[in-house]
Each structure stands twice: as C-alpha cells, then as structure tokens.
Design a protein around this nucleic acid. Structure first.
Lengths: 204, 204
DNA sequence: TGTACATCAGTGAACGCGCGTTCACTGATGTAC
DNA sequence: TGTACATCAGTGAACGCGCGTTCACTGATGTAC
C-alpha cells in the first residue's frame, strides 16, 4: 500500500478528494473509497459519522491547504521587498510557477466542485465555501489597496472586483486547463492577470 | 403545469438542466425528473435510450444556446460599427447587460459542471465539452486579431490567452456569483475584462 | 370516404444491484492505582 | 510490577430504499390506397 505510514483517516480524505473533483460528491461512493484505502465500511464510519461529515472535512482541509500555500507565497514574496506592488507581482509569479510545476496540472478546485453540487450539502458547508471565497477577496483587496496608496490606479476600477478577478481567473483557468487537457493554460492566465495588475498601476 | 404547451422531451431537458447545475449529474435522478415533468419512467426512456443520452442532449442544447446568444450579441454589436475594437467592446457591454438582467443570476455553466464530473461521462461527451471551449477561444481570438491590426497591443500578450481569459472570467465569475449569492459579480467581472481589453489596445 | 396499417408518445410492473447507515462486537494499546 | 478498566481503531453482518434499465403492452394520430 502506498500510504502505509499515514493514518487511515488521512488516506480516506486523499482518495475521496481526488474522486470528488473527477466524478462529483454524489458519485463518490463510500464503497469505492474503502476499497482503495483497504478498510471496511464500519472503519469508514468510525472516522466520519456520515457522508456529510466527510464532505465537511474534505472542504475544511482544502481551505486550510490553500490558506497555507498563499501564506507561504506571500511570506516569500514580501520577504526582501517592502514595495507592495512588486511584492504582489512576485506573489503572482510564484503562484504561476507553483501551478506550472504541478505534474498533472491542478487537481481541481473543491470550492468550484461544491458550487455545482450545492443542493447536496448542508447550510454549514455552503457557508464554509462562501467564507473561503470572501477571505481570499479580503486578502487580495488589502494588498491592492496598499499598492494603490503608492501607485494611484491608471484606470478607474473597484479594487474588490480586481481582487475577485484573481479568484475567477484561477477557478476558470482550472476548468479550461482540465477540459482542454492543457495544464499550461492556468499558469498563463495567472501571468496574464499579473500583466493586467501591472498595467493598472504603472500604465502600459 | 407551467410548461403545458411544450413537448415532454423539452420539459425533461429543462428540469434536468436546472437540477444538474445545482446537484450534479449523478444526483439528478430520473425518478425526480419524471415526477416534476409529470410522466412515467418508461416515458423518459422513450425519449432517451439511457441516462448518458440525456447528458449528451443536455450539453448539446446548452452549447447551441450559448452559440446563438453570442451570435446575436455580435450581430448587434458590429451592426452599425465597422471598427473591430469598438465592436468588441460593445459586445462585452451587451454581454454584461444580458447577465445583469437575468433575474436569478446565471443558472450555471454546464461545461464547468461537466468538467467536475468528467469521469461520469463517455469520451464523446468530454470531446463535445472541449470542442465548445475551443470554438469560443477561436471566436474571441479572431476578433482580437482583427483589433490588433488597427490597434497594436500596448502590452506583449498572446491573444489566445486573452481570448481564453474571457471564458475563464465567465466560468469563474459564475462560481463567485453563486457561492457568494451576489449576482452582480459576474457582470462586473465582464466589465472589468472589458477595461483590460481597452487598456491593452489603447493604453491607460 | 372507408379501411388497414404504421408510427408516436407514452403506460405499468418487475428486476437486481449498490448505496448509506446501524448495531453488536473485538483486539491492541494506554492509563490509574 | 500487576491488575482493572478505558479508549482507539477498527470488523462483520444485516437493513431497506432508491436507482437505472427492461419488457410487453396501449391508445391516439397519421398515411396509403
């Protein structure tokens, strides 16, 4: 077994996570998960009280991972750089590189997946999804506002929209990359967004 | 019954289409569809040989509808206007207005929905999905290239990427709008893309 | 115009399978005294 | 150090329900001659 050393709970989340972004949550059966993990059905229900709890744990883990990745990227980007614009541009470059280096492209955004199956989930899961998106908006908007203090925008825009645009580009880019089987699309879109931000604050 | 005058086949597609973007294809049961349409299960199988045929018909209809909408928008945008840039900018404005006027926001993009459930579908459906995205890329890229002949780009970009960006913004914007329950996000993203295109070809 | 036949748009009953969930139980490890 | 008990990480068998699919059949409408 490949994950012999990791806990069964973590293995369940790994297997389920992959399946959910490729088949959807409803089509991801517990039966199939336990077969791949090598556990009985009762073993599954020891870790999760029901399937809804699996959905919640899956989403929470995904959000935490993304949060950690962005935190790390920003720490590196602003490390030797106090200029907010250059820091943000470096962040975007680092993000694009990270996405480029994923061997099979981005596996799929769980927030987008859940969005297209929202009637399956309880209100707390939908809330979790919405709060994740709002926290990204706040995070990017804050950085954009710091930039705008030094570099007055050359185009009249709502910085919340510019912040949302990164989330949109990311989710949309993942979809394009997957459907067209071209993993370069997503990082290229991030770099294009970067050029837009540059044009926005320093002109063409 | 609200669709008393339309054919049962069309009603099946209407009901199924809405359910698929809210619960996913696997969780959209034939049982539930026929209950809402007011038909027996055998009636369903008269119209579709199996569930996969429903998926295919659903996607084909969605693609045809989107195609018709874009065709209509472009016809109106370029009607009194031979300048390619202004024509494209008007297209985007018309698109944003159309999206703004949808009473409940965009119901959901079937291409994105299928992308996150692709393992459920046969190869011909996945192909259909990919070809739809490629035709949009081609359509937008062609217009961008016509623009570039008259307005040399102020930023060095790949126009195929700029074309893809519109698809990405649209798919991503739909997701943001739905998850955050704010239908204004999608049209605002389209308008922001419009500002990017403007900056790209005429500067800031 | 009448009759024979074909097609259309379904009905009704039955099928087997896989699903999520429950329940009583267990063997290995950890902790208290 | 030994014993009693608790907790952890599961097992095994059974459940009822809903799913997609099949099959023989039907009543209304259309077409040929």
């Amino acid at each position: 077994m490949q994950h012999a050393r990791t806990g069964k709970r973590e293995q369940i989340l790994d297997v389920a996570g992959l399946s959910v972004v490729e088949k959807g949550f409803a089509a991801t059966s517990i039966e199939e998960i336990i077969a791949e993990v090598g556990i009985t059905k009762s073993g599954f229900f020891y870790h999760f009280s029901d399937k809804n709890e699996l959905a919640k744990a899956l989403l929470q883990r995904y959000i935490d991972m993304e949060e950690a990745i962005f935190h790390d990227i920003e720490a590196r980007a602003y490390e030797l750089n106090e200029d907010p614009l250059h820091g943000f541009l470096i962040s975007l470059k680092l993000l694009a590189e990270l996405l480029e280096d994923l061997p099979n492209g981005h596996p799929g955004c769980l927030i987008a997946s859940y969005c297209y199956q929202s009637r399956l989930f309880s209100a707390d899961i939908r809330d979790l999804n919405a709060r994740a998106l709002m926290s990204w908006r706040a995070r990017f908007q804050q950085q954009l506002e710091r930039i705008a203090e030094t570099y007055p925008p050359r185009i009249e825009v709502d910085l919340a929209d510019v912040a949302d645009m990164l989330s949109a580009i990311a989710d949309g880019g993942i979809i394009l990359s997957r459907v067209l089987h071209d993993k370069t699309i997503l990082p290229r879109q991030v770099m294009l967004y970067r050029q837009f931000v540059k044009a926005l604050f320093v002109g063409t």
